[in-house]
Design a protein around this nucleic acid. Structure first.
Lengths: 185, 185
DNA sequence: TGGAGCATGTAAGATGTTACATGATTCG
DNA sequence: CGAATCATGTAACATCTTACATGCTCCA
């Protein structure tokens, strides 16, 4: 029995004030981006499915002038479904498919110089990511102090920050080791 | 232009002494498991493609008694292709799709008690993973001291250990915070 | 007037998993 | 003798990405 987590991600987002496909996508890109991502190609069909299954309802707003807009709202049945999913503990820790680490694994076929350059490139990206997390954190702490969700959002961000920090430290140490390997030849 | 990393993972494994679909799968499950995984449903067709593209050759061993066994070996062209891929720096850090963090994000719909239980379950799994890394590390350090690949394998393991350790620390701290939230109600 | 943002959607293809089918050997 | 391990493979399905198509509003 396999569950479609994407469906639940969208169902969950309907409870956070996002109620159009567009705003769901935005929320994902801005806040869930470090542990989940979904494309429009999944969002719109899934939204339709949710309505078909009675987990959400849609109100089509065909306003004057303005283009069509579909507002989705979670139903009681949808809330129950979300609850059930939340209650269920996860079975396995996910495996992060990491192209960079994969390349590193085979790097004896490369020169140390190249490996070092790639490592520095990766480090830069990690630092950028860390800074992004920090600024989102500041934003949540200041702007959403009262929001009920805020605590949990901060937990997930903290997770992102800590694992990224660990990766940054690893990068720095590994660059050092690679430089030693190179000079010790 | 999208590259099929799986193809390169298999090509790379052909250079580490794995030369049957079965042994490739084993290596993936035992050593690449923390940053890459591939099912048989991908391995065998990919191996066939590699041969079609001239990146590998196959020697069919139809031994007496024993069942068929296909030994794959990388060709010079395959080595070049692997090299080219290794040279190319990655464009983006991967996003780890994490079901657990996704659930946590929506956890205000749950009771703290439940969240704590889930957290403890996750922590346990992380600790198990960490221990696995440690034992693989010991194995590589003792058994493969001379192996050319060993250094790079240890780097990737260190990455796994450090990020897992960071996640463990985060778990412990977050459990503490959740307990405070609960008692402070 | 042109670009950014708001807004919805689909079709084709890439990618990956699961379940199934088969059969030999080895070890307890 | 039965279970585990070695060994290869496919078909159906699930999942996800990319490219495309459309059209509005607001602002510089």
């Amino acid at each position: 029995m396999k569950v479609n987590h994407t469906k639940f991600a969208i169902l969950g987002l309907l409870t956070t004030g996002c109620n159009t496909g567009y705003s769901i996508k935005q929320m994902i890109d801005r806040s869930l981006n470090h542990f989940w991502k979904i494309s429009y190609g999944q969002i719109y069909p899934t939204l339709k499915n949710l309505v078909d299954e009675g987990l959400a309802i849609v109100q089509e707003t065909t306003q004057q002038g303005k283009s069509d807009k579909k507002e989705y709202h979670i139903t009681r049945k949808g809330q129950q479904t979300l609850q059930d999913w939340l209650q269920k503990p996860i079975e396995e820790i996910p495996i992060e498919k990491n192209e960079f680490i994969l390349k590193l694994f085979f790097s004896r076929h490369e020169e140390e110089q190249t490996a070092i350059r790639h490592m520095e490139n990766y480090l830069e990206k990690l630092q950028f990511r860390f800074d992004t997390y920090t600024s989102i954190e500041t934003m949540i702490t200041t702007a959403l102090a009262g929001e009920e969700d805020a605590n949990y959002w901060l937990f997930t961000l903290d997770y992102g920050k800590r694992t990224t920090k660990a990766a940054i430290d690893w990068c720095e140490d590994t660059i050092r080791k690679l430089k030693e390997m190179e000079s010790g030849k």
